[in-house]
Computed example of a mutant assay.
Amino acid sequence: MEESQADKRMDKQDFLERARRFSQPFRIDDGAGFQLKDHDPDDTLHLDKTDKDRAQEALTMGVKMLAEFQDLLYAQDRWALLLIFQAMDAAGKDGTIKHVMSGVNPQGCQVNSFKAPSSVDLDHDFLWRSNNALPERGRIGIFNRSYYEETLVVRVHPEILARQTLPPERLTKNIWKERFRDIRNYEEYLSNNGIVVRKFFLNVSKKEQRKRFLERLDRPEKNWKFSANDIKERAFWEDYMEAYTETIRHTASPHAPWYVVPADNKWFTRIAVAAAIIETLDSLHLQYPEVSPEARAQLATARALLEKE
């Protein structure tokens, strides 16, 4: 028997409620007192590894619902969604983006991966290249790394500041506080202009990172993913954890929250990220544009002409 519209609505509401249960535990709206050490990278809420099949089923449903929301977002053409992904190496950013966004129409999605800044980038302010990559209305933009590198890798390696050719008098002990403030103001500006910002830190443990690095070395088809620089950066693990703690503490807000997503179990990471995106899009109350009476008359005329052929 064909499922009724009422049943479909009930199934959708049930799934949205489950999405909230998966995303809310990891959402940080207010960073006051935030400590990264209080968040377990191996957390899977009430699920265990034997629930992987159910998890995959939930992700499949989530991808389908995300595609429906993205179609509404594109048709309405009022909002844009910016998803920012930050993480240590091997935390699974690429795989999460690939799996969660697999059902989205490529026309409605823009992905930007930010590598080390070029000489042109360094001749501009630190938000310049990100600003040029913002999604248009009706589209989902994905930043694989972002302007947050300025309070993470640059903070861990302050010698990078010397290459940014800033005036010496701007290189004060308050530069990180100033950048946190600039980012908060920037994200409020984006929110005021209809660009919804959601930020994800994929929280992988040092132990799990080691395991994934060894896997990349052991499997020839994954050798290309490994870089000697990955090991060098691993030596700064504690510095990065402190930088992430400070960054999330000072830039989490209700209009641009962070999601500190456990990343030791990829199957769970993908569910939690999909749930947060779905919950966000649902909160926008998206609808297809209403057709005016004049346009409806034109549609009726077009139908009549087609039926006469």
Rank of each mutant, 00 (worst) to 15 (best):
E2T: 14
Q5C: 13
Q5T: 08
Q5H: 15
Q13W: 07
F15E: 00
A19C: 14
R20E: 11
R21C: 06
F22V: 07
R27M: 01
R27G: 04
G31W: 02
G31M: 00
G33M: 03
Q35E: 03
K37V: 15
H39I: 11
D40V: 10
D40I: 10
P41N: 03
D42R: 11
T44D: 10
H46W: 04
K49G: 12
K49L: 11
R54E: 13
E68Q: 14
E68H: 14
F69W: 02
Q70E: 15
L73Y: 00
L73R: 05
Y74P: 05
A75V: 08
R78K: 10
W79Y: 13
L83E: 07
I84N: 00
Q86F: 05
M88P: 06
D89W: 09
A90K: 07
A91K: 00
I97K: 01
M101N: 06
M101K: 07
S102A: 12
N105C: 09
Q107P: 08
G108Q: 01
G108S: 14
N112Y: 14
K115L: 10
A116M: 08
V120S: 12
D123Y: 09
H124Y: 05
W128K: 06
W128M: 02
N131G: 13
A133V: 00
P135S: 02
G141K: 06
G141I: 04
Y147S: 06
L152V: 06
H157Y: 09
E159Q: 13
Q164M: 07
T165R: 09
L166A: 10
K173I: 14
I175T: 02
D182W: 04
I183G: 00
N185L: 07
Y186K: 07
Y186D: 02
E187K: 00
Y189T: 15
S191Q: 06
S191A: 14
N193C: 00
E208N: 07
R210P: 01
R210G: 03
F213N: 00
L217Y: 09
P220K: 08
P220I: 01
K222A: 05
N223P: 07
N223H: 11
N223T: 03
K225I: 03
F226K: 05
S227I: 00
N229T: 13
D230R: 11
K232Y: 11
K232V: 14
E246T: 01
E246P: 00
E246R: 03
T247N: 06
T247Y: 13
R249Q: 15
R249T: 15
A252D: 03
P254H: 02
P254I: 09
A263I: 02
D264S: 10
K266G: 04
F268T: 12
R270G: 08
A272E: 02
A275F: 04
A276C: 08
A276T: 05
I278G: 05
E279R: 03
S283M: 05
L286E: 00
Y288R: 11
E290M: 01
E290A: 06
E290S: 09
S292N: 08
Q298P: 08
Q298N: 11
Q298H: 15
Q298D: 12
T301M: 13
R303V: 15
R303T: 10
L305A: 12
E307F: 09
